[in-house]
Design a protein around this nucleic acid. Sequence first.
DNA 1: GAAATATGAATCGTATACGATATAAACGAA
DNA 2: TTCGTTTATATCGTATACGATTCATATTTC
Lengths: 160, 160
Amino acid sequence: MSNKQIETPDVNKISAQALYLGNQICFPLYAASRLTNQLYTPLLKEMGLTYPQYLVMMVLWQYKQMTVNEICSKLVLETNTVTPLLKRLEQKGMIARRRSIEDERIVIVSLSEKGTNLRDSALEIPSKIVANFSGSQISKEEMLAFKETIWKLLGVLKTK
Amino acid sequence: MSNKQIETPDVNKISAQALYLGNQICFPLYAASRLTNQLYTPLLKEMGLTYPQYLVMMVLWQYKQMTVNEICSKLVLETNTVTPLLKRLEQKGMIARRRSIEDERIVIVSLSEKGTNLRDSALEIPSKIVANFSGSQISKEEMLAFKETIWKLLGVLKTK
DNA sequence: GAAATATGAATCGTATACGATATAAACGAA
DNA sequence: TTCGTTTATATCGTATACGATTCATATTTC
Protein backbone atom coordinates (compact mmCIF):
# COMPACT_ATOMS: atom_id res chain seq x y z
CA MET A 1 0.00 0.00 0.00
CA SER A 2 2.65 2.47 1.01
CA ASN A 3 4.70 0.81 -1.71
CA LYS A 4 2.28 1.85 -4.39
CA GLN A 5 2.04 5.35 -3.02
CA ILE A 6 5.78 5.74 -3.33
CA GLU A 7 6.01 4.29 -6.80
CA THR A 8 3.33 6.15 -8.72
CA PRO A 9 2.21 9.36 -7.03
CA ASP A 10 3.12 11.58 -10.02
CA VAL A 11 1.27 9.42 -12.48
CA ASN A 12 -1.74 9.39 -10.21
CA LYS A 13 -1.75 13.15 -9.94
CA ILE A 14 -1.46 13.56 -13.69
CA SER A 15 -4.32 11.13 -14.29
CA ALA A 16 -6.42 12.87 -11.70
CA GLN A 17 -5.89 16.29 -13.24
CA ALA A 18 -6.75 14.91 -16.66
CA LEU A 19 -10.19 14.12 -15.28
CA TYR A 20 -10.93 17.77 -14.50
CA LEU A 21 -13.41 19.22 -16.94
CA GLY A 22 -11.27 22.32 -17.43
CA ASN A 23 -8.35 20.26 -18.74
CA GLN A 24 -10.37 18.36 -21.28
CA ILE A 25 -10.35 18.93 -25.02
CA CYS A 26 -13.36 16.84 -26.07
CA PHE A 27 -15.71 18.57 -23.67
CA PRO A 28 -15.24 22.12 -25.06
CA LEU A 29 -15.52 20.57 -28.51
CA TYR A 30 -18.83 19.06 -27.56
CA ALA A 31 -20.13 22.18 -25.83
CA ALA A 32 -18.98 24.53 -28.60
CA SER A 33 -20.59 22.30 -31.19
CA ARG A 34 -23.92 22.53 -29.42
CA LEU A 35 -23.66 26.28 -28.91
CA THR A 36 -22.76 26.98 -32.55
CA ASN A 37 -25.75 24.88 -33.47
CA GLN A 38 -27.85 27.19 -31.32
CA LEU A 39 -26.35 30.15 -33.16
CA TYR A 40 -27.79 28.79 -36.40
CA THR A 41 -31.18 27.88 -34.98
CA PRO A 42 -32.93 31.28 -35.16
CA LEU A 43 -31.53 31.96 -38.65
CA LEU A 44 -32.56 28.54 -39.94
CA LYS A 45 -35.95 28.65 -38.29
CA GLU A 46 -36.98 31.39 -40.72
CA MET A 47 -36.16 28.96 -43.52
CA GLY A 48 -37.92 26.07 -41.82
CA LEU A 49 -34.72 24.08 -41.32
CA THR A 50 -32.78 22.52 -38.44
CA TYR A 51 -29.00 22.54 -38.48
CA PRO A 52 -28.57 18.92 -39.65
CA GLN A 53 -31.24 19.54 -42.29
CA TYR A 54 -29.32 22.64 -43.37
CA LEU A 55 -26.20 20.50 -43.76
CA VAL A 56 -28.07 18.12 -46.06
CA MET A 57 -29.33 21.08 -48.09
CA MET A 58 -25.77 22.41 -48.37
CA VAL A 59 -24.63 19.08 -49.75
CA LEU A 60 -27.46 19.12 -52.29
CA TRP A 61 -26.91 22.77 -53.28
CA GLN A 62 -23.32 21.81 -54.04
CA TYR A 63 -23.83 18.44 -55.73
CA LYS A 64 -27.43 18.72 -57.04
CA GLN A 65 -28.01 15.00 -56.58
CA MET A 66 -26.74 12.49 -54.06
CA THR A 67 -27.54 8.98 -52.92
CA VAL A 68 -28.34 8.47 -49.24
CA ASN A 69 -24.96 6.84 -48.77
CA GLU A 70 -23.15 9.74 -50.36
CA ILE A 71 -24.93 12.20 -48.08
CA CYS A 72 -24.07 10.04 -45.08
CA SER A 73 -20.46 9.99 -46.16
CA LYS A 74 -20.28 13.77 -46.58
CA LEU A 75 -21.87 14.44 -43.19
CA VAL A 76 -20.20 11.53 -41.38
CA LEU A 77 -23.60 10.31 -40.27
CA GLU A 78 -25.26 6.90 -40.42
CA THR A 79 -28.34 6.09 -42.49
CA ASN A 80 -30.35 5.54 -39.34
CA THR A 81 -29.94 9.26 -38.70
CA VAL A 82 -30.14 10.50 -42.27
CA THR A 83 -33.13 8.47 -43.49
CA PRO A 84 -35.68 9.99 -41.09
CA LEU A 85 -34.07 13.39 -41.59
CA LEU A 86 -34.58 13.09 -45.34
CA LYS A 87 -38.18 12.03 -44.80
CA ARG A 88 -38.81 15.24 -42.87
CA LEU A 89 -37.15 17.31 -45.59
CA GLU A 90 -39.32 15.53 -48.15
CA GLN A 91 -42.47 16.22 -46.12
CA LYS A 92 -41.56 19.90 -46.10
CA GLY A 93 -41.25 19.78 -49.88
CA MET A 94 -37.56 20.68 -49.90
CA ILE A 95 -36.28 17.52 -51.58
CA ALA A 96 -37.40 14.53 -53.63
CA ARG A 97 -36.41 10.90 -53.10
CA ARG A 98 -36.56 8.24 -55.79
CA ARG A 99 -35.20 4.73 -56.21
CA SER A 100 -32.54 4.30 -58.86
CA ILE A 101 -33.74 2.26 -61.87
CA GLU A 102 -30.38 0.60 -62.45
CA ASP A 103 -30.01 -0.43 -58.80
CA GLU A 104 -33.22 -0.61 -56.83
CA ARG A 105 -31.33 -0.50 -53.53
CA ILE A 106 -30.13 3.04 -54.11
CA VAL A 107 -32.22 6.08 -53.20
CA ILE A 108 -31.37 9.24 -55.10
CA VAL A 109 -32.03 12.51 -53.31
CA SER A 110 -32.54 15.69 -55.32
CA LEU A 111 -33.69 19.24 -54.71
CA SER A 112 -37.25 20.38 -55.31
CA GLU A 113 -37.81 23.82 -56.78
CA LYS A 114 -38.58 25.09 -53.28
CA GLY A 115 -35.37 23.54 -52.01
CA THR A 116 -33.36 25.03 -54.85
CA ASN A 117 -34.76 28.49 -54.25
CA LEU A 118 -34.04 28.26 -50.54
CA ARG A 119 -30.34 28.63 -51.35
CA ASP A 120 -30.81 32.35 -51.94
CA SER A 121 -31.90 32.86 -48.35
CA ALA A 122 -29.09 30.62 -47.12
CA LEU A 123 -26.39 32.68 -48.82
CA GLU A 124 -26.43 35.27 -46.05
CA ILE A 125 -26.13 32.79 -43.19
CA PRO A 126 -22.36 32.15 -43.14
CA SER A 127 -21.50 35.84 -42.79
CA LYS A 128 -24.08 36.22 -40.04
CA ILE A 129 -22.49 33.35 -38.13
CA VAL A 130 -18.96 34.66 -38.60
CA ALA A 131 -20.11 38.09 -37.40
CA ASN A 132 -20.53 36.60 -33.93
CA PHE A 133 -16.76 36.31 -33.55
CA SER A 134 -15.57 39.49 -35.21
CA GLY A 135 -15.17 41.50 -32.01
CA SER A 136 -13.98 38.61 -29.84
CA GLN A 137 -10.63 37.68 -28.34
CA ILE A 138 -9.98 35.34 -31.24
CA SER A 139 -7.98 36.83 -34.11
CA LYS A 140 -8.54 35.94 -37.74
CA GLU A 141 -5.21 34.13 -37.82
CA GLU A 142 -6.09 32.08 -34.76
CA MET A 143 -9.44 31.23 -36.29
CA LEU A 144 -7.80 30.13 -39.54
CA ALA A 145 -5.34 27.93 -37.67
CA PHE A 146 -8.23 26.50 -35.70
CA LYS A 147 -10.16 25.78 -38.88
CA GLU A 148 -7.19 23.94 -40.32
CA THR A 149 -6.71 21.82 -37.21
CA ILE A 150 -10.38 20.95 -36.78
CA TRP A 151 -10.50 19.66 -40.36
CA LYS A 152 -7.30 17.70 -39.77
CA LEU A 153 -8.78 16.34 -36.56
CA LEU A 154 -11.93 15.28 -38.37
CA GLY A 155 -9.76 13.50 -40.92
CA VAL A 156 -7.99 11.54 -38.20
CA LEU A 157 -11.24 10.72 -36.42
CA LYS A 158 -12.81 9.39 -39.60
CA THR A 159 -10.12 6.72 -39.78
CA LYS A 160 -10.86 5.48 -36.27
CA MET B 1 -31.13 42.46 -63.56
CA SER B 2 -27.91 42.90 -65.53
CA ASN B 3 -27.36 45.82 -63.20
CA LYS B 4 -27.21 43.58 -60.16
CA GLN B 5 -24.96 41.12 -61.91
CA ILE B 6 -22.47 43.84 -62.63
CA GLU B 7 -22.58 45.34 -59.18
CA THR B 8 -22.11 42.34 -56.90
CA PRO B 9 -20.60 39.33 -58.68
CA ASP B 10 -17.63 39.03 -56.30
CA VAL B 11 -19.81 39.15 -53.23
CA ASN B 12 -22.08 36.52 -54.72
CA LYS B 13 -19.18 34.20 -55.44
CA ILE B 14 -17.82 34.61 -51.93
CA SER B 15 -21.21 33.89 -50.41
CA ALA B 16 -21.63 30.86 -52.62
CA GLN B 17 -18.28 29.40 -51.66
CA ALA B 18 -19.05 29.97 -48.00
CA LEU B 19 -21.96 27.56 -48.43
CA TYR B 20 -19.68 24.69 -49.44
CA LEU B 21 -19.37 22.13 -46.68
CA GLY B 22 -15.60 22.01 -47.09
CA ASN B 23 -15.27 25.72 -46.26
CA GLN B 24 -17.30 25.56 -43.10
CA ILE B 25 -15.96 25.67 -39.58
CA CYS B 26 -19.06 24.68 -37.59
CA PHE B 27 -19.60 21.50 -39.57
CA PRO B 28 -16.20 19.91 -38.75
CA LEU B 29 -16.76 21.02 -35.17
CA TYR B 30 -20.09 19.21 -35.12
CA ALA B 31 -18.75 16.10 -36.85
CA ALA B 32 -15.58 15.92 -34.74
CA SER B 33 -17.65 16.30 -31.61
CA ARG B 34 -19.78 13.32 -32.55
CA LEU B 35 -16.79 11.21 -33.54
CA THR B 36 -14.86 11.93 -30.34
CA ASN B 37 -18.00 10.96 -28.48
CA GLN B 38 -17.88 7.63 -30.33
CA LEU B 39 -14.25 7.26 -29.27
CA TYR B 40 -15.38 7.34 -25.64
CA THR B 41 -18.37 5.05 -26.09
CA PRO B 42 -16.64 1.63 -25.91
CA LEU B 43 -14.49 2.76 -22.96
CA LEU B 44 -17.44 4.16 -21.06
CA LYS B 45 -19.70 1.23 -21.87
CA GLU B 46 -17.54 -0.94 -19.59
CA MET B 47 -18.32 1.49 -16.80
CA GLY B 48 -22.00 1.66 -17.69
CA LEU B 49 -21.87 5.31 -18.69
CA THR B 50 -22.67 7.42 -21.73
CA TYR B 51 -20.49 10.40 -22.60
CA PRO B 52 -22.84 13.07 -21.14
CA GLN B 53 -23.24 10.91 -18.05
CA TYR B 54 -19.44 10.68 -17.82
CA LEU B 55 -19.28 14.49 -17.94
CA VAL B 56 -21.67 14.72 -15.00
CA MET B 57 -19.58 12.21 -13.10
CA MET B 58 -16.43 14.23 -13.83
CA VAL B 59 -18.10 17.30 -12.36
CA LEU B 60 -19.07 15.35 -9.27
CA TRP B 61 -15.65 13.72 -8.87
CA GLN B 62 -14.18 17.20 -8.88
CA TYR B 63 -16.74 19.05 -6.74
CA LYS B 64 -18.26 16.19 -4.66
CA GLN B 65 -21.63 17.93 -4.52
CA MET B 66 -23.48 20.14 -6.96
CA THR B 67 -26.97 21.48 -7.45
CA VAL B 68 -28.70 20.71 -10.73
CA ASN B 69 -28.20 24.30 -11.82
CA GLU B 70 -24.49 24.17 -11.05
CA ILE B 71 -24.09 21.01 -13.10
CA CYS B 72 -26.01 22.62 -15.95
CA SER B 73 -23.75 25.63 -15.76
CA LYS B 74 -20.56 23.55 -15.82
CA LEU B 75 -21.71 21.47 -18.80
CA VAL B 76 -23.49 24.32 -20.61
CA LEU B 77 -26.66 22.26 -20.72
CA GLU B 78 -30.25 23.02 -19.77
CA THR B 79 -32.15 21.35 -16.94
CA ASN B 80 -34.47 19.71 -19.43
CA THR B 81 -31.46 17.70 -20.61
CA VAL B 82 -29.77 17.21 -17.27
CA THR B 83 -32.76 16.23 -15.13
CA PRO B 84 -33.58 13.02 -17.03
CA LEU B 85 -29.86 12.29 -17.33
CA LEU B 86 -29.51 12.53 -13.55
CA LYS B 87 -32.52 10.26 -13.09
CA ARG B 88 -30.81 7.60 -15.18
CA LEU B 89 -27.58 7.98 -13.19
CA GLU B 90 -29.61 7.66 -10.01
CA GLN B 91 -31.32 4.52 -11.30
CA LYS B 92 -27.91 3.01 -11.97
CA GLY B 93 -26.95 3.78 -8.39
CA MET B 94 -24.14 6.15 -9.36
CA ILE B 95 -25.51 9.27 -7.66
CA ALA B 96 -28.02 10.44 -5.07
CA ARG B 97 -30.45 13.36 -5.38
CA ARG B 98 -32.00 15.17 -2.46
CA ARG B 99 -33.87 18.43 -1.96
CA SER B 100 -32.09 21.11 0.02
CA ILE B 101 -33.64 21.78 3.42
CA GLU B 102 -32.88 25.51 3.35
CA ASP B 103 -34.36 25.97 -0.11
CA GLU B 104 -36.80 23.31 -1.23
CA ARG B 105 -36.43 24.34 -4.86
CA ILE B 106 -32.82 23.20 -5.00
CA VAL B 107 -31.86 19.59 -5.72
CA ILE B 108 -28.43 18.58 -4.47
CA VAL B 109 -26.65 15.86 -6.42
CA SER B 110 -23.95 13.80 -4.74
CA LEU B 111 -21.94 10.65 -5.46
CA SER B 112 -22.93 7.24 -4.16
CA GLU B 113 -20.19 4.90 -3.04
CA LYS B 114 -20.43 3.12 -6.36
CA GLY B 115 -20.14 6.41 -8.18
CA THR B 116 -17.17 7.45 -6.09
CA ASN B 117 -15.36 4.19 -6.74
CA LEU B 118 -16.01 4.45 -10.45
CA ARG B 119 -13.45 7.22 -10.60
CA ASP B 120 -10.61 4.69 -10.36
CA SER B 121 -11.68 3.09 -13.62
CA ALA B 122 -12.14 6.49 -15.22
CA LEU B 123 -8.58 7.58 -14.47
CA GLU B 124 -7.20 5.65 -17.42
CA ILE B 125 -9.68 7.04 -19.94
CA PRO B 126 -8.05 10.41 -20.82
CA SER B 127 -4.74 8.81 -21.79
CA LYS B 128 -6.55 6.21 -23.90
CA ILE B 129 -8.37 8.97 -25.76
CA VAL B 130 -5.22 11.01 -26.31
CA ALA B 131 -3.45 7.90 -27.61
CA ASN B 132 -5.69 8.04 -30.67
CA PHE B 133 -3.88 11.14 -31.89
CA SER B 134 -0.27 10.36 -30.95
CA GLY B 135 0.77 9.09 -34.37
CA SER B 136 -1.35 11.50 -36.40
CA GLN B 137 -0.52 14.53 -38.55
CA ILE B 138 -1.32 16.80 -35.62
CA SER B 139 1.67 17.82 -33.51
CA LYS B 140 1.51 18.35 -29.77
CA GLU B 141 2.00 22.08 -30.27
CA GLU B 142 -0.84 22.26 -32.76
CA MET B 143 -3.07 20.32 -30.39
CA LEU B 144 -2.23 22.65 -27.51
CA ALA B 145 -3.01 25.70 -29.64
CA PHE B 146 -6.24 24.04 -30.67
CA LYS B 147 -7.15 23.34 -27.07
CA GLU B 148 -6.57 26.97 -26.17
CA THR B 149 -8.71 28.25 -29.02
CA ILE B 150 -11.59 25.83 -28.47
CA TRP B 151 -11.82 26.95 -24.83
CA LYS B 152 -11.68 30.57 -25.92
CA LEU B 153 -14.35 29.85 -28.51
CA LEU B 154 -16.54 28.23 -25.89
CA GLY B 155 -16.13 31.32 -23.74
CA VAL B 156 -17.30 33.57 -26.54
CA LEU B 157 -20.21 31.28 -27.39
CA LYS B 158 -21.41 31.24 -23.79
CA THR B 159 -21.94 35.00 -23.93
CA LYS B 160 -24.17 34.73 -27.02
C1' DG C 1 -48.28 40.44 4.61
C1' DA C 2 -50.67 39.46 0.27
C1' DA C 3 -49.89 39.80 -4.60
C1' DA C 4 -46.52 40.02 -8.19
C1' DT C 5 -42.17 38.38 -9.54
C1' DA C 6 -38.20 35.54 -9.79
C1' DT C 7 -35.89 31.22 -9.39
C1' DG C 8 -34.88 26.06 -9.61
C1' DA C 9 -36.45 21.80 -11.46
C1' DA C 10 -39.28 19.16 -14.02
C1' DT C 11 -42.36 18.10 -17.98
C1' DC C 12 -43.62 17.99 -22.90
C1' DG C 13 -42.93 17.66 -27.83
C1' DT C 14 -39.86 17.27 -31.64
C1' DA C 15 -35.52 16.20 -33.80
C1' DT C 16 -31.38 14.26 -33.70
C1' DA C 17 -27.61 10.35 -32.91
C1' DC C 18 -26.36 5.77 -32.95
C1' DG C 19 -25.75 0.61 -31.85
C1' DA C 20 -28.13 -3.27 -33.36
C1' DT C 21 -31.04 -5.46 -36.42
C1' DA C 22 -33.97 -6.20 -40.50
C1' DT C 23 -35.08 -6.14 -45.37
C1' DA C 24 -34.57 -6.15 -50.10
C1' DA C 25 -31.79 -6.06 -54.05
C1' DA C 26 -27.43 -7.13 -56.36
C1' DC C 27 -23.41 -9.92 -56.67
C1' DG C 28 -20.44 -13.98 -56.60
C1' DA C 29 -18.88 -18.50 -56.27
C1' DA C 30 -19.68 -23.37 -56.83
C1' DT D 1 -28.59 -21.01 -61.44
C1' DT D 2 -28.95 -21.09 -56.96
C1' DC D 3 -27.56 -20.16 -52.54
C1' DG D 4 -24.51 -17.54 -49.57
C1' DT D 5 -22.63 -12.90 -49.16
C1' DT D 6 -22.43 -8.17 -49.74
C1' DT D 7 -24.51 -3.70 -50.20
C1' DA D 8 -27.96 0.16 -49.64
C1' DT D 9 -31.64 1.64 -46.86
C1' DA D 10 -34.76 1.36 -43.37
C1' DT D 11 -36.48 0.13 -38.68
C1' DC D 12 -36.15 -0.17 -33.64
C1' DG D 13 -34.86 1.14 -29.00
C1' DT D 14 -32.50 4.22 -26.01
C1' DA D 15 -30.32 8.54 -24.83
C1' DT D 16 -29.51 12.97 -25.68
C1' DA D 17 -30.63 18.20 -26.87
C1' DC D 18 -33.50 21.97 -26.57
C1' DG D 19 -37.48 25.46 -27.13
C1' DA D 20 -41.53 26.14 -24.63
C1' DT D 21 -44.21 25.51 -20.73
C1' DT D 22 -45.43 24.15 -16.01
C1' DC D 23 -44.98 23.78 -11.08
C1' DA D 24 -43.46 24.66 -6.61
C1' DT D 25 -40.92 27.42 -3.68
C1' DA D 26 -38.55 31.62 -2.48
C1' DT D 27 -38.16 36.65 -2.85
C1' DT D 28 -39.62 41.23 -3.62
C1' DT D 29 -42.61 45.01 -3.71
C1' DC D 30 -46.04 47.95 -2.26
